[in-house]
Computed example of a mutant assay.
Amino acid sequence: MGIGGSILLIVVGAIFTFGLDDTDLGPFNLDTIGWILQLAGVVALLLTLYFWNSRRRTVVREVPTAGHTVIPPTTDEVIERRERRY
């Protein structure tokens, strides 16, 4: 859904909850629908931010350049460099 869709749900829910005087639309209560939309928007926003944050972690392996002797690592030794990209 993304950040934009989450904010849209929160805004529409706030309009239904706080912006309308007539809260009944047939058998539906617009205040309740507004609170549900706001809650769904907050949950979707938190999930989006969580998955975006977990996707940023990358592992970059160092590749030896030409002219250097390559010594393969032993089974107990792993050569990696971790970088965070912001």
Rank of each mutant, 00 (worst) to 15 (best):
L46K: 04
L9W: 13
F16N: 04
L39F: 13
E62C: 02
P64G: 05
I3P: 00
V12D: 04
A44F: 07
V78I: 12
S54K: 14
I33N: 00
R81Y: 13
A66E: 13
M1R: 12
G19N: 05
T17C: 00
L45M: 12
T75E: 09
V43L: 13
V78D: 08
T48V: 03
H68G: 10
G26P: 04
G5M: 02
T65R: 14
L49Q: 02
I10D: 10
P72D: 15
R56D: 01
G19L: 06
E80A: 04
I15C: 08
L20W: 06
P72T: 15
D24R: 14
G41C: 05
G2V: 00
I10A: 12
V60M: 08
P72V: 15
N53H: 09
P73L: 07
P73E: 03
L37K: 01
V78R: 07
Y50H: 01
V78Y: 05
I79S: 06
R57Q: 09
N53Y: 08
I15L: 11
T17I: 00
G67E: 10
G4D: 02
G4P: 01
G13C: 01
P27V: 07
G13Y: 01
F18Y: 12
A40E: 06
G5V: 01
L49M: 03
I71T: 13
D24E: 14
T74S: 14
L39W: 05
P72Q: 15
T48Q: 08
I15F: 10
P72H: 14
V43E: 04
I3Y: 02
V70C: 07
E62F: 04
T58E: 09
R85W: 15
T32Q: 09
T74H: 11
E62P: 02
L30A: 05
L37P: 02
S54D: 12
L8E: 04
L39Q: 04
G26E: 05
F18D: 02
T65C: 09
I10W: 10
A66Y: 11
I36N: 06
A44Y: 03
L39D: 05
R57C: 02
V60P: 02
Q38G: 04
G34A: 00
Q38P: 00
I15E: 03
R82L: 08
V11M: 11
